[in-house]
């Protein structure tokens, strides 16, 4: 992870893009693994979970950023948790209002967004030190990165495990579903495969950057 900015950051495209690639919360920082593994058995669930988390992330980051000069250091964690819990409750009601079937599919993982370390991490490491606008852009990027990661797991698992994508059948009727993919182990397999791909791409990029000698191999 790039070093955390302790001074106020200027708004650049990188503020947004970092969350998608360089500091992707799932593929690089390996945060928030619980929903990543648990609710990505279908694309719809993954998308809903990603958007719900993004909403909570953006709203709570904004509020933390807004109140950053007003929250004493000693009570900051308690304040962040209360703020995050508020937005999780709002999302909880909102999803129930949108679709009860989706609510049943996501189960306890909506309430568990409150314990998602991506959000608390953003509040502590970024929003509490940055201006409103950069916080908004950065948390949107992080949310997008999280959603993207969930989607990439969800689509693979749904295609292999069910032969469908967004509920639309992709294969002839006698397609053999890989049942393991929609079971919990499938989450681990697919996450492992994506991490392999991401690390391979990153290593290749770093090799190219350091030239063919490659003495300064990956430090991480």
């Amino acid at each position: 992870m790039a070093e955390l900015p302790n001074t106020e950051e200027r708004l650049t495209p990188d503020t947004f893009l970092r969350g998608l690639w360089e500091e992707n919360p799932v593929f690089v920082m390996l945060l928030g693994m619980c929903p990543v593994l648990a609710v990505t058995s279908t694309t719809v669930n993954a998308l809903a979970m990603g958007l719900a988390t993004t909403f909570v992330l953006v709203c709570s980051s904004l509020l933390v950023s807004l109140l950053r000069n007003w929250i004493p250091k000693q009570v900051r964690i308690a304040s962040y948790i209360v703020i995050i819990a508020t937005f999780v409750t709002i999302v909880d009601y909102a999803i129930q209002a949108i679709s009860l079937e989706l609510y049943a599919a996501l189960g306890a993982f909506i309430q568990l967004i409150v314990a998602n370390c991506v959000i608390l991490g953003r509040a502590e490491a970024y929003a509490s030190k940055q201006k409103l606008m950069t916080t908004l852009v950065n948390s949107l990027g992080m949310g997008a990165g999280f959603t993207l990661a969930l989607l990439s797991l969800g689509t693979v698992r749904e295609i292999l495990g069910n032969g469908t994508i967004l509920g639309i059948s992709l294969f002839p009727a006698d397609f053999q579903p890989w049942i393991v993919m929609i079971l919990p182990p499938g989450g681990f397999f697919v996450l492992g495969a994506w991490l392999l791909l991401f690390n391979w791409l990153r290593l290749r990029k770093e090799r190219k950057a350091t030239g063919p000698i490659g003495v300064t191999a990956d430090a991480r």
Binding site: W178, I179, V180, M181, L183, P185
Partner: peptide, 10 residues
């Protein structure tokens, strides 16, 4: 074990 979990009927 993988195919047992993936294709339990076959």
């Amino acid at each position: 074990a993988f195919v047992q979990a993936a294709f339990p009927v076959a």
